[in-house]
Design a protein around this nucleic acid. Structure first.
Lengths: 95, 95
DNA sequence: GCGAGTTCCTTGCTAAGCATGGTACCTGTT
DNA sequence: AACAGGTACCATGCTTAGCAAGGAACTCGC
């Protein structure tokens, strides 16, 4: 989620659609809205309302400093976790 | 969990220690006993009691056919998920 | 027969995912 | 002006998972 916001601000439904388009990812509004609320509560994202060209106003989410830091931290954890799972899950070659 | 059992049968505390020794992994008894029970309930592992050289008897877990299949299936999902997260999380180079 | 080490498992709290449903705004049509 | 359809927000309620904590039971050495 935080990574999706790195390039710039986005609104919720847009994020849902983006994730849905990525192979191997699953999400729905019921997941994303509570998640974004938590990120906001924890100060990792900020929001601002902007008008929409077609519909009600949108709440745009933007990374904070803390959010950027948390993302960097997560990337490190992810790399370690990923490599750990790889080492367990992918059979070693014995050739 | 299933991957840890691929090489052969193991008992629960042994699995906890193995996971604890892997960098980036966290577990505890409170997590894996319920997990192993679920795997057994779902027919993905079988168990057998063997005596221990030092303590009460141990319950050894072994992959079933179904468990092997589930593991293979998971590996495919893992690869797709892993690559999806990588593509989102790791900044692309613009050089 | 008692304490220490080992092994098994359960209970209870908390948090997350997600389907569902509900509200509000905007625009175009009648 | 009403209303229908699309867009966007968010909350409720169910289910499940993780995990710390605690408890029972076996074995061995003293």
């Amino acid at each position: 989620m935080l990574a999706l916001l790195r390039p710039g601000e986005r609104y919720a439904l847009d994020l849902v659609r983006e994730l849905g388009a990525v192979d191997g990812m699953v999400t729905s509004e019921g997941t994303i809205y509570p998640l974004l609320s938590r990120l906001r509560r924890d100060g990792l994202v900020e929001t601002a309302w902007h008008e929409s060209p077609s519909g009600p106003p949108r709440r745009y989410y933007r990374l904070t400093e803390a959010g950027q830091g948390k993302l960097d931290e997560f990337v490190g954890e992810w790399i370690r976790f990923r490599d750990a799972v790889d080492s367990l899950v992918i059979p070693k070659e014995s050739t």
